[in-house]
Design a protein around this nucleic acid. Structure first.
Lengths: 227, 227
DNA sequence: AAGTAACCGTTACCTCAAGTAACACTTACC
DNA sequence: GGTAAGTGTTACTTGAGGTAACGGTTACTT
């Protein structure tokens, strides 16, 4: 009895969650070993950190770039979690922009090696197609583009520029952050403020040129969150 | 007679220029083979393209990253040559910004594989320290920072923001250009205009907040060229 | 109870690109 | 004629990514 109704064989289902969990475990191991030994770790190091030999690792990831990709996604997730509150926060626009930028900077400041691993160590050998960072940046940029587009449409403006805008903003913050991370010649708060100023002025100019006036101190209710 | 005054032995000097020329030759070969076979070429491919075997290549470059670096520098040189005129051009500020951005985009549009090789294929294996792209981006950013700083000082403004500004701008244009290059969903002119708009507004806002008013159509004599 | 589908894990190997050793020949300065 | 630079070759070493082949465990199926 029980289930003679059998789905395709319960032995197959038995592990469903387990595999996911195991992958996550290896991703954690990678992050740990990167934090310890710097961004130039190999598959063997990762396996060792997880207390296991290479083939086991390869049972869960087809490939180095597969692992790297997973790490990148995890990192993006962490990043998003940190930026989410800043995105949704109450307060003036100016302050919210600063908050978002600063959230980003604080994440890379706290995990410099992970950041380098994901951003620099990418491309996992051959295939330029399967770019690891690109995926993550695109995800972030897409999120941003959606938010921007919504706001533009809310003001009855052309939303065609939302995508280039989003990618421009992402690149701007990322590159400035990268520079800052390597030689820290100013405080984080300072940089956040500089970047937020640039963004704010650009945004203000854009709206102004469409005849929309906005006060930097206006709270401007969020249209929607990260979703 | 002649020169019994001997410098350290003329046999050493004899090749001085030659080595430089040879390096340049290999750099050209790399660029050629990358254009032909895509950004994922190995040392053997490069050597073959130059009609020579690997060890010869290694006589002139200590290392893969050494070659990559040289290629990056050459590419940066080309880029600078193309952006130079746009930097120095007469015309309104707005137009000049557009010109500079468009010059950049046109270069990556014409050499997509070289661009990918330099930007993505970087990091030449292990050493994250010796980052290939970073060098070039820093060079460009430094040039920009100098120009910006000079202008800011000319207006008696705090020039401390010039460096972050420069890195922000570089990242912005680079990332937007990257996105555009992969999926060309808008015309180059269109993107140039969007980016120039962002930059112009940011710049305008910065000056405005310091009480300086500037007309986008003002020619604004260049303080100095690339130098 | 026997079979089997999924996992656990190992050691020892293969592969391929980066980089090197060792060797031989050429040119022009000394 | 000696030698310091360069020209070039084939054949090797190295190291990291990735695989083969083996054996053990668990819990579902028959």
């Amino acid at each position: 009895m029980a289930r003679t109704v059998k789905g395709p064989d319960a032995r197959r289902e038995r592990w469903k969650g387990h595999r996911e969990q195991r992958r996550a475990e290896f991703v954690e191991a990678t992050i740990a070993v990167v934090a310890k030994k710097g961004p130039d770790v190999g598959m063997e190091d990762v396996a060792a950190e997880a207390g296991v030999s290479k083939p086991v690792l390869y049972r869960h990831f087809t490939d180095k770039s597969d692992l790297y990709l997973a790490v990148g996604q995890k990192a993006t997730e962490v990043l998003m979690e940190r930026m989410g509150p800043a995105l949704a926060a109450e307060g003036s626009i100016r302050d919210r922009i600063t908050g978002i930028v600063d959230a980003y900077l604080s994440v890379i400041e706290e995990n410099p090696n992970l950041y380098r691993f994901v951003v620099k160590g990418s491309f996992a050998d051959r295939p330029v197609e399967k770019d690891v960072v690109a995926e993550d940046k695109n995800l972030i940029a897409a999120t941003l583009a959606r938010i921007l587009g919504d706001y533009l449409r809310a003001f009855d403006m052309d939303s065609g520029g939302a995508e280039p805008w989003a990618h421009a903003l992402v690149g701007m913050v990322q590159n400035a952050g990268d520079w800052w991370l390597e030689r820290q010649t100013m405080s984080r708060a300072n940089l956040s403020d500089y970047l937020a100023t640039i963004i704010w002025h650009a945004l203000d100019g854009l709206l102004r040129s469409a005849g929309v006036e906005i006060d930097p101190a206006t709270p401007l209710t969020p249209l929607r969150l990260v979703d």
